[in-house]
């Protein structure tokens, strides 16, 4: 049973003439880690909003085709049912702070408060999540006093504390330094190993390809490639797709052209794969 089922989706924002997504088909199984990439304006954020259940209830517009999240049809399900199941972290850490709370702990609890979760349950869930994300020591700080990386961890904790089945991350590390980015992704990786389904939009495939079980490339609102990272890279070779290939993969291409890498062997995506490939 797929956890995300998108069939023949075409979506147009209100007052826009052209669809932001069209003819999109995507099935994601439980526990997968899907990385989505593509050039600017390709529709990546729109796809995130679809998977986060924000369309059509929050962003209106015209939706054709079917979208089912955790077996719920987004056109029929209530916001409350969807909020429990899918969480999302966006690009800008500061803009995700609610602004109405004084401490990090309360900020993380905000979603639970709004769902009317009783106080004792809220306390253990928040404390658990702060510890899991590694910001327990910041519980009593003001969210405004934190660095961008720490704020993004707060946003992550705030999404995860709702215990979602699917986590959508829309370029969550594009405004962070490499160290902070590593931290955010390490937390996500941990949870994915415990069964969380992850959809991550990322430009820097360099490291996204390392943990992705699947790579989806969007181009002008349609999916132009979908599969194992190595397959996708092989398929895109020589095309202008706006995708930044990892350096090891480029090395693989070159090696193949020079006869150092057999044509039948999948292209390397990580450094280990390259090393193993060259050893053989």
């Amino acid at each position: 049973m797929a956890i995300i089922e998108i069939e023949n989706l075409t979506y147009t924002y209100p007052v826009e003439n052209f669809p932001a997504l069209h003819g999109v088909n995507l099935r994601v199984e439980e526990g997968e880690w899907v990385v989505v990439s593509g050039e600017n304006e390709a529709g990546k954020s729109t796809l995130c909003c679809i998977i986060a259940g924000l369309i059509p209830s929050v962003y209106r517009g015209k939706l054709e085709g079917t979208v089912r999240l955790c077996s719920l049809d987004v056109c029929q399900a209530s916001r409350k049912d969807l909020i429990h199941r899918v969480g999302m972290v966006m690009q800008n850490p500061f803009h995700q702070i609610s602004g109405g709370r004084f401490t990090v702990a309360e900020e993380v609890a905000f979603g639970l408060e709004n769902l009317g979760v009783p106080r004792p349950e809220m306390h253990w869930r928040v404390n658990d999540m702060l510890a899991q994300v590694g910001i327990a020591h910041l519980a009593r700080c003001s969210p405004f006093s934190l660095s961008g990386g720490q704020q993004q961890l707060v946003a992550l904790a705030a999404a995860l504390v709702m215990h979602p089945e699917v986590l959508v991350l829309d370029e969550p590390t594009s405004q962070l330094d490499p160290q902070a980015s590593q931290k955010v992704l390490a937390v996500v990786q941990d949870l994915q190993k415990q069964g969380l389904t992850v959809v991550l939009v990322e430009h820097r495939l360099e490291w996204a390809a390392e943990f992705a079980s699947r790579l989806v490339i969007l181009e002008k609102g349609t999916i132009c490639a979908d599969g194992l990272p190595a397959q996708v890279f092989a398929g895109l070779a020589g095309r202008a797709s706006g995708v930044h290939f990892p350096a090891v993969t480029l090395l693989g291409f070159q090696a193949r052209r020079e006869g150092l890498w057999p044509a039948g062997r999948p292209l390397p995506v990580t450094i280990e794969q390259a090393v193993r490939g060259f050893r053989r």
């Binding site: 916001r79 909020i83 803009h95 702990a105 979603g111 639970l112 709004n114 009783p118 928040v126």
Partner: peptide, 22 residues
Amino acid sequence: ERAVALELRAFRSGVKPTTYYE
């Protein structure tokens, strides 16, 4: 963006909210 962030956190979901601290 903040409006979307609030939406994702069930702001005004129709339930009577609880509070983290008393």
